[in-house]
């Protein structure tokens, strides 16, 4: 029996909204420790790695590890019926062929419950090697979202280069070239406005803006976003969910022909 109760159901709704355009049919893996998802997009260019610790839940029971095969666009439709302040309860039997979702509104006392048929999704688990990245940048997630949105006007590829000058985002297209340079900023009193750049060695990589834009759907989950890069490796873009988990996106770089 799997049963989990999340007082702030909105967190789970935001997680679904942050990945449902990138990965459609996913397994939500339930273990005694956490709910997790690891899934590549259909083109095998990006990987989503989500984790939500059992400590995020007011009640968490998982007798046996389960994989709940779900179609995220359908899950997203169900979450449209959840109130902002609702408590969310997930429930599935061990012989899981369906998932119960319940939304409880403490104030009005209403309880909505939905049953989703589960899908058998063959899991292609990937081994993601632990890497000591050469550059690690923490910045306001709203700033990253704005940069990605603005540069999409200029072209479809974003060059991200981290040097001692700072972190530069560049895009070139028919109408010209755009560059946005961010420097380390730990002066502002608001922690969330800080930009910290840890650079062990300079890195310059190119990425498809279409994917970076997908990733910024996770902006509501976290005021800060962490970018990690090493020469010739996929970038990791991490949205921490307080101390409870994260949504991480891995994106393969674009290479010179």
């Amino acid at each position: 029996m799997f049963e989990a109760r999340l007082a702030n159901g909105n967190i789970f709704k935001m997680i679904v909204e942050s990945i449902r355009e990138l990965v459609v049919d996913v397994n939500i893996d339930c273990s005694t420790e956490e709910l997790s998802i690891q899934c590549m997009d259909s083109a095998h260019v990006a990987l989503v790695s989500m984790s939500l610790s059992q400590s995020a839940f007011d009640h968490f029971r998982c007798d046996r590890s389960l994989s709940l095969g779900l179609n995220l666009p359908n899950v997203s439709k169900i979450f449209k019926m959840m109130g902002r302040d609702d408590t969310m309860v997930l429930k599935a039997e061990d012989s899981a062929d369906k998932l119960m979702l319940m939304f409880e509104n403490d104030k009005s006392g209403t309880i909505a419950d939905f049953e989703l048929k589960l899908m058998a999704i063959e899991a292609e688990q990937l081994g993601v090697p632990d890497t000591a990245y050469k550059c690690s940048i923490s910045m306001p997630s709203s700033e990253f979202q704005r940069i990605v949105r603005d540069l999409q006007v200029m072209g479809d590829t974003c060059k991200i280069s981290c040097t001692k000058e700072g972190l530069k985002f560049s895009a070139t297209g028919q109408i010209g070239t755009g560059n946005i340079l961010m420097r380390q900023n730990v002066a502002s009193e608001k922690e969330e406005d800080h930009v910290t750049i840890d650079m062990e060695e300079p890195v310059e990589l190119n990425f498809a803006l279409r994917y970076l834009n997908f990733f910024t759907k996770a902006t509501p989950l976290s005021p800060t976003v962490i970018l990690k890069m090493s020469p010739g490796l996929p970038i990791v873009i991490e949205y921490p969910i307080e101390q409870l988990g994260h949504v991480k996106y891995y994106l393969a770089p674009k290479m010179e022909e």
Partner: peptide
């Protein structure tokens, strides 16, 4: 111009 890489070139299937 730039060619999009695949993650399969970096991550191994378990």
């Amino acid at each position: 111009n730039m060619k999009q890489g695949s993650l399969l070139g970096f991550f191994t299937k378990k």
